[in-house]
Design a protein around this nucleic acid. Structure first.
Lengths: 318, 318
DNA sequence: TTGTAGGCGTTATCAC
DNA sequence: GTGATAACGCCTACAA
């Protein structure tokens, strides 16, 4: 024990947990800190968690850690967590059909103070009263605080932009992985076409996974259809990139033959010069952690909706 | 306590920690499990960690969570960890100059069994005897087990491929973030040029961050130089993508005017049709966790070097 | 096959 | 301003 070095034990706890000032003399505090440093002593987090009932750790459940947008969100959450002295435990359920409590969630009881669900449904076990607080990102469920992006405004801006360029018919490359955020994009697209008197059901629509081979293959299929429209709306920049890359392969000119808009403003959108609806992913992650922290402190935080911004590039307005 | 429901307490521990068979009767086991489920009881991980000295959690320290290659590595590590009943705690030091112990490392004492360092230097505090086990990924330090990629063979294959296409002079777009893995790439490039009697110091070389704006800006600068060589070697596919995108902007034909090779076989390499040295990122992460697990079990595992594969695409052999 | 008792390292309460 | 003491929930002898 480090107390050997100085004099006491309670005092060590007081000093090292930041409750020294006002209770422990400056001299003693310095002595304790010096001894701790010398012995390389660190308070045991497990013991602290057990005794205090709070672990300074939050779990982050995500469906796909490999998506670039998530990486940025993760960074935002992780930074905010660190600033608050918390740690982030990662749980990748890889689109797993874990209707019941994920094993990791179970595993972490007592070692995790609360959960952030990223675009994933909260299992029943965590919805019961008395269970740990939860915040959802990019998803909504009754009675659970959430942070999400204003995809509606973003989608409307993108669609209006296409209309302004003279496009009436707009195809759609959707994400195979469903989710509320994509449902919202689809709803705006359908509403937009509806206003123009076009039946969305009759439109050219495809579906792909979030990876280049899948996106390109599906994009090729769509672009080769004889009824291919002059513009495409994609759930995400990876999918939009598939469209642009496939168009080039097929010898179609972008934007003259096909215009494309995507979402998220990923690096790939800049590289392929794709018009995109931008969101601040880091802010999303940080806001999510902020809400969870507030909940952990017993507050009832207000939900957050972050704005979007349309970034026009060569894939629409060459 | 769940023991209320059935009969005992020791028994609950035995059953729920999987040590029931052979010590506890089937009937009692079932009763315990039923009661636990009914009460929604979960063993407290903090108490378990305190008592047993093992937390079933590993820390993963990384310099940049947003890099796509890391996302895949993370998935591999996380999956392997979950299969072994462990959890991954993420620590993003964002290229931070944390020479001393990162606060997160300190924070996690007693709640983390060991560390995985991804392309990051291990702080002194963790190198001292008696501290928690560490495994390094894509980096080497004396006396610390590691997993890394065979970048040398990959680089040689890429350089030989360019030579075969008739390229003698090869420019280089480097990563601004240093690291052993990039030093190795550079060494092979320099050796290759040296063998051809070319001074690497006199070659066209640039440096950029791992993001599209930075890569494209630097690529533009390199491609506009009058002494621009006919081929470029890039530390990574993001940087290679910057070269290809900039070349297109400048009206240069790829691969006729500029050939480009990158590393990692990221999605962006497929989208931009870039020749790349592929590695299995998930296997890297899984192997790293495997080594750490072995160390946690008191073994002295053998280091791992994973192979590479050159994927030839249109950026070199159109 | 099951129960009892002690202690892991902290923090909180209460005396001094 | 500082020190003793109990308890957080679990695991592991050891006893029954």
């Amino acid at each position: 024990m480090a107390k050997r070095a100085g004099v006491s034990q309670t005092t060590v706890s007081l000093v090292l947990s930041g409750k020294g000032p006002g209770r422990v003399s400056e001299a003693t505090q310095d002595a304790v800190r010096a001894a701790a440093k010398e012995l390389g002593y660190r308070p045991n987090a497990a013991a602290r968690a057990l005794r205090s009932g709070t672990a300074s750790a939050v779990g982050l459940v995500v469906r796909d850690v490999t998506h670039p947008f998530f990486g940025r969100t993760l960074r935002g959450a992780q930074r905010a967590a660190r600033e608050a002295g918390h740690v982030v435990v990662l749980i990748d359920d890889n689109y797993g059909a874990e209707g019941r409590d994920s094993s990791a969630v179970a595993l972490a009881e007592g070692a995790i103070d609360g959960f952030l669900f990223f675009a994933a449904k909260v299992p029943r076990a965590l919805r019961e009263p008395g269970s740990r607080p939860v915040v959802i990102v990019e998803y909504e469920q009754p009675r659970i605080p959430f942070v999400r992006l204003d995809v509606e405004t973003g989608a409307d801006a993108a669609l209006a932009h296409l209309q302004q360029l003279g496009h009436r018919e707009i195809g759609y490359l959707r994400s195979r992985a469903g989710g509320q955020t994509f449902d919202r994009r689809r709803a705006r697209w359908a509403a937009h076409l509806g206003r123009l008197g076009i039946d969305p059901e009759a439109m050219v629509v495809g579906e792909a996974d979030f990876d280049a081979p899948s996106a390109m293959a599906e994009a090729r299929r769509l672009l080769e259809r004889p009824d291919r429209p002059g513009a495409f709306f994609a759930d995400d920049d990876l999918l939009a990139s598939g469209l642009v890359a496939a168009a080039r392969e097929l010898g179609l000119r972008v934007p003259q033959d096909v215009a494309v808009v995507g979402f998220d403003d990923l690096d790939v959108a800049r590289l392929l010069d794709i018009t995109s609806v931008r969101f601040d992913a880091e802010a999303l992650g940080a806001a999510a952690f902020g809400l969870l922290l507030a909940r952990l402190r017993g507050k009832r935080p207000r939900n957050v909706v972050l704005p979007s911004e349309l970034v026009v590039r060569g894939s629409t307005a060459g």
